[in-house]
């Protein structure tokens, strides 16, 4: 029921945002849910200076579709936009590796993560941890963070056939929290509760040099308007 109400509210929000955009004054931004906190903070800052900005979530791929159709002015995306869209890199977003509390701190490397994502590792004992079955929580194929992580970690190699593909960051956290031996990726959340945040190559997401960073692109059509430029500058200041 909560989801249905939330869905109805989201649809109303998108419809009202698109209606406002059609009047030509509001700048409507859509795209990555991982970049949503930065997108909303930048929108508040720019709106307070007299340029109304509305942010609607929906994911990277949906954002790119909407900006290509001209329904929104800017899409924030973890996926590199393709022509005819123009794109700039605004910054990078850390992706935290989270695990079930029972596992405890296990030092992970990028190579270990590749092995997990490809399915080569199925037990924590293969990574120097306890003898516990590893359950890997990933995201569904339409997720921008999934596409970006696959490019970063695997290139063209195949992803494991046994991952649980969750619908959102929240679903990943819920699943990892409740499943002994679980590990997953959560974008842009530095201190998620109830799970163990794992170091990668000895570094945590908030630390400089953390290796699991994915770029955030801004996609737009044609030339940037002053309003778009001001908004992108505000987002850039908030991302690393």
């Amino acid at each position: 029921m909560v989801r249905l109400v939330a869905l109805a509210a989201a649809l109303l929000l998108i419809a009202s945002a698109l209606a406002a955009h059609s009047h030509g004054r509001d700048l409507v931004v859509s795209g990555s849910t991982g970049a949503l906190p930065a997108a909303e903070e930048a929108a508040r800052a720019v709106s307070s200076r007299g340029q109304p900005v509305t942010v609607v979530a929906g994911g990277s791929l949906l954002g790119l579709t909407l900006v290509e159709r001209g329904d929104v002015g800017i899409a924030l995306s973890e996926v590199r936009p393709r022509p005819p869209l123009h794109a700039v890199v605004l910054g990078q977003l850390p992706v935290a590796v989270v695990a079930h509390r029972d596992i405890g701190p296990v030092p992970l490397t990028l190579g270990d993560l590749r092995a997990i994502v490809s399915g080569a590792v199925t037990c924590w004992c293969q990574l120097g941890g306890r003898s516990l079955r590893l359950t890997f929580f990933f995201r569904t194929p339409v997720s921008g963070v999934r596409i970006a992580l696959l490019q970063l970690l695997l290139g063209n190699a195949d992803v494991t056939a046994r991952s649980v593909n969750a619908l959102s960051n929240g679903d990943v956290l819920l699943g990892v929290r409740r499943t002994p031996g679980a590990v997953g990726f959560v974008e842009g959340v530095l201190r998620p509760e109830g799970v163990e945040v794992m170091a990668v190559d000895g570094l945590y997401p908030a630390e400089r040099g953390y290796p699991l960073m994915i770029p955030i692109y801004a996609a737009y059509r044609g030339r940037l308007s002053p309003a778009q430029g001001a908004y992108l500058a505000a987002v850039r200041r908030l991302l690393r």
Binding site: L61, T140, P141, V142, R162, N165, A166, L167
Partner: peptide, 26 residues
Amino acid sequence: NNGSYPPALLHPSATMASVLLTEGGG
């Protein structure tokens, strides 16, 4: 929501309806 073959009772799997729900529009 994992569409790898074969679907299984106790492993992540997918149905046509779940694929349409999670990927439709994306």
